[in-house]
Computed example of a mutant assay.
Amino acid sequence: MAAKAHSTATLRLSVGSLRIAHPITVPSGPVPATEILPALQGLVNAVVAAAEQGQAISCRKGCGACCRQLVPVSRTEGERLLELVRALPPRRREALAGRFAAAEAAIETAGLGERRGRSDRDLSTAYFALGVPCPFLEEESCSIHPDRPLICREYLVTSPPERCASPTQEGVAPLAVPKVSMAARGLQDEADDWFPLAMLMAWARSRPRKAARRTGPEWVQRFLGRLGIK
């Protein structure tokens, strides 16, 4: 089978007060949106790296308090994560399924499975109070760190990491990073919304099955358009 052709370009973007020059490589032909997610991850990484300049980041492997926050993920990220889970060895997949089931049960019991009537901020506060760990958290570290959601890449702090465990988040100083990750919401369809990462398996049971195919450059332009960048 012939290898897929790819297109490479250097994106020169103004994101908030940041100026970004970032090379990006995507498939040239029509592909599902999941195939350009690695390129979007690289773009978000570049934005975060630019925001980090001169800042002392205190986040370290093993300080997993932020992995108990509500992590909103897009449909495209959800589909990519399901692919990742399916590729795991059976024993790891089984253990992960148990953690997802426990998280889903805790969220539903607390009445947080339904977003209607709640602001995102109220939902996030109530969710963090539950202390439900991300199912991908193992030994207080992210077990899928290279493939972690876009919004996880954008959350870094400059304050002492032990403050992140406080329910009030008092004294926590997040790094000011433009929320580029939000452009992934509605990437495939305007009607697509976000869902909590811990509810991935619940979402999978009723997720949309029809997926659009566009060329890699078209997907990137669509993503940039959602950021207001032409």
Rank of each mutant, 00 (worst) to 15 (best):
G171M: 02
L18V: 04
R148F: 11
V48M: 02
T25L: 07
Y127G: 01
R19G: 08
C134N: 10
D120E: 13
A110Y: 08
V177M: 00
A2R: 15
P161Y: 01
R115T: 10
S141E: 10
H22Y: 04
G113I: 08
T8F: 01
A212L: 12
E108K: 07
I107S: 05
R121C: 03
W219E: 08
P149F: 11
E170F: 06
A183N: 02
G29M: 03
G54E: 07
L81C: 02
A33S: 15
G111T: 06
M182R: 11
S17T: 09
R75W: 05
R222M: 12
W203N: 06
G54F: 09
L84H: 09
L137E: 08
S58M: 12
A105Y: 03
I20M: 02
L82T: 11
I107F: 03
T158W: 10
E162G: 03
L43I: 03
V73Y: 01
A3R: 14
P30Q: 14
A105R: 15
R205W: 02
P160H: 04
P149K: 09
R93A: 06
P135N: 07
P72I: 06
A183D: 03
L187M: 08
P167R: 05
P146V: 13
T215E: 04
E139M: 09
P89M: 09
I57S: 07
L70N: 00
L84E: 07
V132Q: 04
S181I: 03
R226C: 06
R185Y: 14
A97Y: 00
G171I: 05
F195C: 03
A183V: 08
L43K: 02
R118E: 12
L175I: 08
L197F: 13
R153T: 07
I229A: 10
T168G: 05
L18N: 06
A49S: 13
L175S: 02
A198H: 15
L11I: 04
R115Y: 06
R91Y: 05
A191F: 05
Q188T: 06
L197C: 07
C63E: 10
V73L: 13
D189N: 15
E79N: 13
L130C: 11
E52D: 11
A51Y: 00
P217L: 09
L88P: 05
C66D: 07
L43S: 03
S7E: 15
E35K: 09
G228M: 11
L96I: 02
L82F: 08
E52L: 06
T76Y: 00
K230T: 07
A49C: 04
T168L: 08
R91D: 10
L123C: 00
N45P: 02
L137H: 02
Y155F: 15
Q41F: 10
K230E: 14
P90Y: 04
V172R: 00
P23F: 05
R93T: 05
Q41Y: 11
A165V: 12
A87V: 11
R115N: 11
A106E: 14
R91I: 09
G16M: 10
